[in-house]
Structures are given as structure tokens and as C-alpha cells.
Write a protein that binds this DNA or RNA. Structure first.
Length: 334
DNA sequence: AAAGAGAACAACCGCCAATTT
DNA sequence: AAAATTGGCGGTTGTTCTCTT
């Protein structure tokens, strides 16, 4: 399923130049235009995806098959979700990366709606930035320890406090509408055997912990504080192609991509944080190997959309991390 | 207000394995 | 069985956006 094209040595089969199509006609590169997007969307809507080279030709696109595939998977696909990476997602990315390294597509499998490209970009821009600030190599043990023992627990703290304040707010505002679609239960991290760790914060106990997944156990816009942007205009196009020509300016930028946080119509809220696809072997190994104790300290989860990568974002946090890291260096442990 | 620097992110590239012809 | 094509991956680049001075 995964792992394609990456594993070892092999194979003299160096059949380069994937697309002789490229040699034949002038292939267009660079940013996609609105017209191209619609050609692609409409073609896939009626004919499905796959066989990208011929798809490109049949759809009347002067693009490589690869380019079409990438555009579809990373951008046009209706269930793609972009922007506002939540604290839980950040935590999960850190955890999975610590386990698998730069296996972006594998990591992306566990973040509903996220693409490997986005996670990779996130890692490079946010995480590597902090490695630079801490003056250490991202691959160094030092940095790994910093992540494991400082950043991730700190993230957990933030998730907890976000959850606590969300709960407090909810309790204080005693609205007339009953929003107990989630019954006050939130879920965060998987632990083992495809089970979620749940915390019933209304009853203040762990009664439901390790409960079997049900739809109500997912983080949804209703039960978390995560901000879910309205369905983008682009996705509306997809379901009902009736392009407004003024929508696109034909260039990158806000006019072209008006909503960086779009959620496509087929991404049902209940599918957020769907870890049900985690393989048992993965989960078991994660639990055994990767010091997941801190996961179990999470009492609940409320997504925070107010900042991306809050850890070390403020001067205060950065100071904290530096101090802690220094301590780590001195003592060798906590 | 303008310029420069850095961040963010879409898109491309080369490589490789799997599949099809 | 061999060659060609396709699909998928991680790494990298180039453009645009945003923040700072």
C-alpha cells in the first residue's frame, strides 16, 4: 500500500522519462488556471480518476499525467482539508514522525483529509524552523529528545487547557440548544486495537476510556473548538459546476484561493480524526516503543485553531524550551 | 509607505516499483 | 520475457504572502 518507490537498492530498470508525452507536445507547467481545474474536475466527475496520462489527454489538458494526479490529490479532491493544523494533528505528526521519519504519505494516512505534501510542508516550515532556532539538527538525538520530552508534553498541556477552557465556556454559557451530540465526550489519541481514549469531561472520569470507536467519538465541529471553514466556492463548483468567472483571477493568491481552510463537502465532520485505519501492528508498536505515557495524560481534547504550531511560537515558550533543553543537556534526562 | 527577509505552500523533479502491453 | 507505461514517494524549487524594519 505504501512504501512504494522508496525501498532499497534495486533496480536497474531505469526507465526514465516517464512521459514521452512530454517530448511530443508543449506541456504546460506552473500554476493551474481555473479553466484547467474545471476540465480536470469535470472529467473526473464523469469518468473517474486513474490512467492519468490518457486522462490528461482526454480531458483536453496539456499537462503531464503526473501533474494532473498531483493537482487532483493535493488540491481539487473534494475531501482534501488544508490549513489550520490542530494541536492534536500536530501532536500526531510529531509522534508518527518520531516513529517513521519522513514517511509523509504514511503519516498522512492517519490525518484525515491531509495530504503528504501538506504534512511535509508543515514539517519543513514549522518544525525545522524550531530546530534551527534551537541550533540543532532535526535528525539529532538532541532535537528528538527535545521534541519527545518537551514539545510534545507541552502540546498535551495546551490541548488540555484548551479543552478545559472550552468546557468552562460551555458550562458557563448554558445555551438553550443542546449540543450534546457528543455528549460531552471527547476523544484524542488512539491507544491500541483501534480504540480511542475517551474522557467524559462532563462526568469527570475516564469511564469510557478505551471505548470502541463510534461516530460520536470523533472530534467534530460540534464537540470541539476547532474552526471549520465554510465549504469553499471551489468545492461548490465541483458539486455544481457553474463557474463564476470572477472567482478566479488566474493566479495564485487570495483571489484564486479564497479560502485556505476549505473543507470539501464529502469530508463529513464525523470523519475528523479518524484513526480507525491504524493498523493493529502500528498501534501496538507505537504503544510499546514510543513512550506514549504522555498520551494517557490527556484528559480530553479540544482542538485549537488559533495558532499553528504554538509550541515555541511566543518568546515565552521559546524561552521555556531553551531552558528546558539546557537542563536536558546538563542532566541527560529529566 | 516601501523594501527586504522569511514563511508558506503549490508544483515539479528524479527515482523506483508495480502494472500493462 | 522484455519493454513501456503508470503510479507513488520523498526531496526540492519557485512564487506569493506576510511580517518586520
Amino acid at each position: 500500500m505504501d512504501d512504494k518507490g522508496r525501498s532499497s537498492k534495486n533496480n536497474n530498470n531505469n526507465n526514465n522519462n516517464n512521459n514521452n508525452m512530454e517530448d511530443e507536445m508543449d506541456i504546460k507547467r506552473g500554476p493551474w488556471t481555473a479553466e484547467e481545474d474545471f476540465k480536470l474536475i469535470n472529467y473526473i466527475a464523469t469518468n473517474g480518476e486513474g490512467r492519468w496520462n490518457s486522462l490528461s489527454r482526454c480531458a483536453g489538458l496539456q499537462r503531464t499525467g503526473k501533474s494532473c494526479r498531483l493537482r487532483w490529490l493535493n488540491y481539487l479532491r473534494p475531501d482534501v482539508r488544508r490549513g489550520n493544523i490542530t494541536l492534536e494533528e500536530q501532536l500526531l505528526i510529531l509522534e508518527l514522525h518520531s516513529r517513521w521519519g519522513n514517511r509523509w504519505s504514511k503519516i498522512a494516512q492517519y490525518l484525515q483529509g491531509r495530504t503528504d505534501n501538506e504534512i511535509k510542508n508543515y514539517w519543513r516550515t514549522r518544525v525545522q524552523k524550531h530546530a534551527r532556532q534551537l541550533k540543532c539538527d532535526v535528525n539529532s538525538q538532541q532535537f528528538k529528545d527535545t521534541m519527545k520530552y518537551l514539545w510534545m508534553p507541552r502540546l498535551v498541556e495546551r490541548i488540555q487547557s484548551a479543552s478545559a477552557s472550552a468546557t468552562a465556556t460551555a458550562a458557563a454559557t448554558t445555551t438553550t440548544t443542546n449540543t450534546t451530540g457528543s455528549a460531552g465526550t471527547s476523544s484524542c489519541m488512539t491507544t491500541s486495537n483501534n480504540q480511542f481514549m475517551n474522557y467524559d469531561y462532563n462526568n469527570n472520569n475516564m469511564g469510557q476510556q478505551f471505548g470502541v470507536i463510534s461516530n460520536n467519538d470523533y472530534i467534530t465541529p460540534e464537540n470541539s473548538s476547532v474552526a471549520v471553514s465554510p465549504v469553499s466556492d471551489l468545492t461548490e463548483y465541483y458539486s455544481a459546476p457553474n463557474p463564476n468567472p470572477e472567482y478566479y483571477s488566474g493566479q495564485m493568491g487570495n483571489s484564486y484561493y479564497p479560502d485556505q481552510n476549505m473543507v470539501g463537502p464529502q469530508l463529513l465532520p464525523e470523519n475528523y480524526f479518524d484513526y480507525s485505519g491504524l493498523l493493529d501492528e502500528d498501534l501496538t508498536a507505537m504503544q510499546e516503543q514510543s513512550n506514549l505515557n504522555w498520551f494517557e495524560n490527556i484528559n480530553g481534547a479540544a482542538s485549537s485553531s488559533d495558532s499553528l504550531w504554538n509550541i515555541g511560537e511566543s518568546d515565552e515558550d521559546f524561552w521555556f524550551l531553551q531552558q528546558q533543553q539546557q537542563q536536558l543537556n546538563n542532566n541527560g534526562s529529566f
